[in-house]
Amino acid sequence: MLHTDIDLPVAPALVEPPRERSRRSLVQRVGIGAMGTAIAGSIAGVVASSSAAEAAPPTDDDIFNFALNFEYLGAEYYLRALTGSGLAANLLTGTGTQGTVTGGSVVPWNGSAIEAFAQRLAIDEMAHVEFIRAATGTAAIAEPSIDLGTAWSVLARAAGLINASQTFNPFGDPISFLIGAYVIEDVCVTALAGAAALLTGPNNIAAAAGLLGTESYQAGAIRTLLSDLGAGQVTDAISALRAKLSGVADDIGTTISGNAYNIVPNDTNGLVFRRTPAQVLNIAYGGATSAPYGFFPNKVNGVITSNA
């Protein structure tokens, strides 16, 4: 449920680069669903790979399977927002423990043009799942357990957007849906950018570049739509939390130096931020050091699973 009377605090600024907050409050324009429950666990230190991968470098299949966890997350989010149901059963099997998806429902679109945008996101993410599963063959991981319910409230409260008595439902309306998409897509971009350095096969590197390109287009479009809505206060708070969980200043919201249309989170060289698998997982797990692990209650599937 949306609440239009919630005053969102201004998120703390990142050290680099300097940032300014948009004067147009998303709360004043459209409101935001309230969010609740405290973030689980403390923020763990981050390392370049999981403990399993430290003994031997991850294979290309390991890297693609790591990415597949997040393609599962995105596909389930977008499909449920549109249809109320997730991926087909034949796209859920594989190595590791097949989990279940909790939460998610059809967004009351009410004629919003954002619905057409969501359809494209769902089609692309489902195609990514199919592509990676085909590329990895019998090594493809099963879909892990995914939390599309309480995990949103955990993350949102940790970002300082709401209090303990409130909850956030990204399926409650089109704008809340965009906020949820903002949480997911930027992380996928930084994960794929970081994974590029770990791949060895030229064809695999080219495939990863294609995936990265699509996710980047999606993330830029999401940022633009939210900028149009004056959502800087919300996106900046989420980005500040992701940077805190990552352990370095590697995220920027949609406002920077007085410009409310920051469509790319990048460094001083104009390059998109890159994250190690452990940094990505620490964000997805909400910094948790014990179950439940954020959006992946039982951790992700595959070789690379640790955020510490």
Rank of each mutant, 00 (worst) to 15 (best):
E54I: 12
G253Y: 07
G160W: 11
R21Q: 15
L198S: 00
S51Q: 14
A48V: 14
Q166I: 00
L212D: 03
V107D: 02
L121K: 03
T150A: 14
N163Y: 05
R223M: 08
A237G: 12
V129P: 07
A196F: 00
A237L: 05
L178T: 04
T214P: 02
W152Y: 13
A11E: 01
K244R: 15
S42A: 15
A207D: 06
L226G: 11
L79F: 00
G247R: 06
A44H: 09
P18F: 11
N203F: 06
G287I: 07
A88C: 07
A75Y: 00
A134T: 13
S153W: 03
A56M: 12
E185T: 01
I132R: 07
T276C: 04
S257L: 14
G201C: 00
G104A: 10
T235S: 06
R157Y: 09
I123L: 10
A278F: 03
A291K: 09
V183Q: 01
Q119G: 14
P108T: 11
G270E: 07
G84N: 06
S165E: 11
G160I: 13
D228M: 13
E115A: 13
N163I: 03
F171S: 02
R19G: 13
Q28H: 14
F168V: 02
Q233Y: 08
R275T: 07
Q233V: 12
N204V: 04
R24S: 14
T138V: 14
R275N: 10
S105A: 15
K244T: 15
A237M: 04
D236N: 15
F168R: 05
E20F: 12
T136F: 09
D147T: 02
